[in-house]
C-alpha cells in the first residue's frame, strides 16, 4: 500500500533543492538564511519521523529563529513579460494542459485509484487519497511541462523557489497554527474558555440561545483559527445544555448550521493563515489583510442568515 510517506519525501527533496539553489543565489543578500530555513524544512519532511518529539521541537525553534532574523527574496532567472507573451503565442492553449492536469489527476486518484485493490489490499491509503493524488498530480504536471512546453525540471524547481520566497515564513504558518491548536488542546484552553462563555450568557429565550451559540462559534473560531476546535467547546457549553436540553431543539440541524457559523468566523481571521494570509502573499497584495477585508461583509451577512435559519428549523 502506498501511504503518505513518498509524498513527504517528494516535498523534502523539493525543499532541499530550493535550499541549495538559495545558497547559490548571489542576488539575495540573505541567501544563507533562506538556505538554512528551507534546508531545515527539508530535514523535517525527510527525517521528521526519526528526530523524536523534542528533536522536532528544537528544529521548529531554529526555523523560527532564522525566520525572525529575516528571510530574503531570491531572484531565480526567469522570463520577462515580453518573452512570456511570445511563448504563450507559440504554445497556444497547450499551455493549459499541465495546469488542468493538476486538479484532474487529483480527482482521478480520489475516484479511481482508491478503488484499486492488489491482493486484497488497497493500492493507496484510503485515508490519504487526496494528498497522494496531489503529489502524483504535481509530478504529472512537471513531466507534461517538460514534454509539451520544454520546461526543464530544474528550472521549474527554481521557479517554484521564486514563489516560495514570495511566501517566505508565511508558508510554514498554517502548519505552525495546526500545531498550536494541538498544544491548546493538551493545555485545556478550549474547555477553560467554554466554561467562562457558558456562565456569561443568559439562557432566557430560544432566540438568545441560538444567537449565543452561532455567534460563539464564529468568534471562538476566529480566535482559534479553526471551526473544528470551536465546535466541541461551544456545543458542550451552549448548544447541548440550552438549545437541545432546555428548549428541545434538533441537535442534528443545530450542529450542521453551528459548524457553518464557525466557518463564517474562519473567513475573518488571520489565525486561518492558509486561507487568508497565504493567498495575500501569493497574489502579491500590498495589504496582508486584503483577502480578509473582502470576506468580512460576506461573513457577517451569512452569520445572520445562519442565526435566522437555525432559529427557524431547530425548534420545529
Amino acid at each position: 500500500m502506498i501511504g503518505i510517506g513518498p509524498v513527504y519525501v517528494l516535498a523534502g527533496l523539493m525543499f532541499g533543492a530550493m535550499a541549495l539553489m538559495s545558497a547559490r543565489d548571489r542576488s539575495n543578500p540573505r541567501r544563507w538564511r533562506n538556505a538554512g530555513f528551507w534546508g531545515l524544512y527539508a530535514v523535517s519532511f525527510l527525517f521528521g519521523d526519526f528526530l523524536g518529539d523534542l528533536g522536532n521541537g528544537i528544529l521548529v525553534l531554529v526555523m523560527v529563529a532564522v525566520a525572525a532574523a529575516g528571510l530574503g527574496i531570491g531572484r531565480p532567472q526567469t522570463t520577462t513579460p515580453d518573452e512570456r507573451r511570445l511563448s504563450a503565442r507559440k504554445f497556444g492553449n497547450a499551455i493549459f494542459a499541465p495546469a488542468l492536469a493538476i486538479p484532474l489527476v487529483t480527482i482521478f486518484a480520489a475516484l479511481v485509484l482508491r478503488q484499486i485493490f492488489i491482493a486484497g489490499r488497497p493500492l493507496i491509503d484510503p485515508a490519504q487519497t487526496t494528498l497522494i493524488g496531489l503529489g502524483l498530480a504535481c509530478v504529472t504536471a512537471l513531466v507534461m511541462g517538460r514534454v509539451l512546453l520544454k520546461q526543464r525540471i530544474i528550472a521549474a524547481v527554481d521557479e517554484g523557489r521564486r514563489l516560495m520566497d514570495l511566501l517566505g515564513w508565511a508558508a510554514v504558518l498554517p502548519q505552525m497554527l495546526s500545531a498550536l491548536g494541538a498544544v491548546f488542546t493538551i493545555a485545556g484552553v478550549g474547555t477553560a474558555i467554554g466554561q467562562v462563555a457558558s456562565q456569561a450568557i443568559p439562557g432566557g429565550s430560544r432566540a438568545a440561545a441560538v444567537i449565543a451559540y452561532a455567534l460563539g462559534m464564529a468568534l471562538f473560531t476566529a480566535v482559534m483559527g479553526n471551526a473544528f476546535a470551536a465546535f466541541p467547546v461551544l456545543t458542550i457549553g451552549i448548544g447541548l445544555p440550552l438549545i437541545v436540553m432546555k428548549f428541545h431543539g434538533d441537535p442534528v440541524a443545530m450542529s450542521a448550521i453551528g459548524m457553518l457559523s464557525g466557518f463564517c468566523g474562519t473567513l475573518t481571521t488571520p489565525m486561518a493563515a492558509n486561507f487568508n494570509l497565504v493567498p495575500a502573499a501569493l497574489l502579491g497584495l500590498k495589504n496582508r489583510y486584503g483577502v480578509i477585508a473582502v470576506q468580512i461583509p460576506t461573513a457577517i451577512l451569512l452569520l445572520m442568515v445562519n442565526m435566522v435559519l437555525m432559529y427557524a428549523v431547530v425548534f420545529r
Binding site: 516535498a11 522536532n56 521541537g57 495546469a99 512537471l142 521557479e159 502548519q175 500545531a179 494541538a182 498544544v183
Partner: peptide, 29 residues
C-alpha cells in the same frame, strides 16, 4: 508537544508541491 504536532501536521504544507509546476507554467506564459 509542539514538535510532535508540527511533525504530524506536515501534510498541511504539501500544497506547496504545486509551486514548481505552476512556476514553470508561469515562465512559459
Amino acid at each position: 508537544a509542539f514538535g510532535k504536532a508540527f511533525n504530524e501536521n506536515r501534510y498541511v504544507s504539501l500544497t506547496w508541491l504545486v509551486l514548481p509546476a505552476i512556476g514553470a507554467l508561469e515562465r512559459a506564459g
